[in-house]
Design a protein around this nucleic acid. Structure first.
Ligand SMILES: [Mn+2]
Ligand SMILES: [Mn+2]
Ligand SMILES: [Zn+2]
Ligand SMILES: [Zn+2]
Lengths: 149, 149
DNA sequence: TTTTAAATTTATAATGATTATAAATTTATT
DNA sequence: AATAAATTTATAATCATTATAAATTTAAAA
């Protein structure tokens, strides 16, 4: 448990970010929840444990994490920005019904990108939308119900 | 010339959208410029020809085009939403230096998405970031200059 | 053609996420 | 302990988007 804090602290120090309590907590939230949260979601959870917390600190910390590549923005169309401490290559799927954002493995290098051979590519994002299995099940169940009537 | 207007008008009618002058002009802007514009860019250009134009009309029209799949949002991380009348499968590349958004062909179906076999996928977005050839050239040229000194 | 109703456009206010600014607090240095 | 630097906090400003209602245009009815 305390080991985790140590690890997070080390991660920050490695990137020359002073590991303040607030910063560790934001990073901990991202890495343990892995829920692609908004600033508000992070703030509302952490302010319970840190009553003096300011939303500005959450914004500042996320900016720091982004600069040092310890976190990235989930590029999906939403009015609130969502963040992800998993910076490895993976795709995102957002369910249009329940809104949950799923991770999925995707071999981005498989994408034929001959037309970009003269471009320097720094980031690759893959984002799908649709309906998740849970919501598909719910739809099916409702159909069955109506059939019975 | 007038033929184009006819075509755009037909496109709207097919989707049960009344082809008002403002709506045709917004769609014309999107299809001819193909520059992934913001609402402001569309408005500022069209208000020259339509001095009474309201920004609300641009928002309303874009919402209509989106609903009927005549346009889509360019899913990239920006504070202003950008729109695209090209709804065929293609990827977007944004240059971090000049900000230009390039289209590029991408065979999205090549992506192995076994893990999403129970998901209903409605939309697929591919978005890359980096530096475009033009800006790469500029960087090289500047290096050469400094070398000469 | 006039009247009436519906649809569209416009003007404007409200919302809300993000950014900016400066004061307060904490941490490090002398 | 005193001072300086860094961090956090509180608060105001910005600005894209949404909401609302009035004005205008278009279509339908009389
Ligand atoms: Mn993720
Ligand atoms: Mn495009
Ligand atoms: Zn769902
Ligand atoms: Zn460029």
């Amino acid at each position: 448990m305390n080991q985790k804090i140590e690890n997070l602290s080390k991660k920050l120090v490695e990137k020359n970010i002073k590991p303040s309590f607030q910063r560790i907590k934001v990073l901990e939230y991202l890495t343990t929840k892995r829920n692609h949260p908004t600033v508000d979601e992070i703030f509302n959870e952490l302010v319970i444990e840190i009553p003096t917390l300011s939303k500005a600190t959450v914004y500042n910390t996320l900016d720091l994490l982004m600069e040092s590549k310890l976190a990235r923005i989930v590029t999906i169309e939403e009015n609130e920005t969502r963040y992800d401490a998993d910076v490895t290559n993976h795709g995102h799927f957002k369910c249009d019904l329940c809104g949950v954002i799923y991770d999925f493995p995707v071999n981005i290098d498989d994408l034929s990108t001959d037309s970009l051979k003269n471009f320097k590519i720094n980031e690759k994002n893959v984002y799908f939308q649709g309906i998740c299995p849970k919501c598909l099940d719910n739809i099916d169940n409702n159909k069955d119900k109506n059939k019975g009537k």
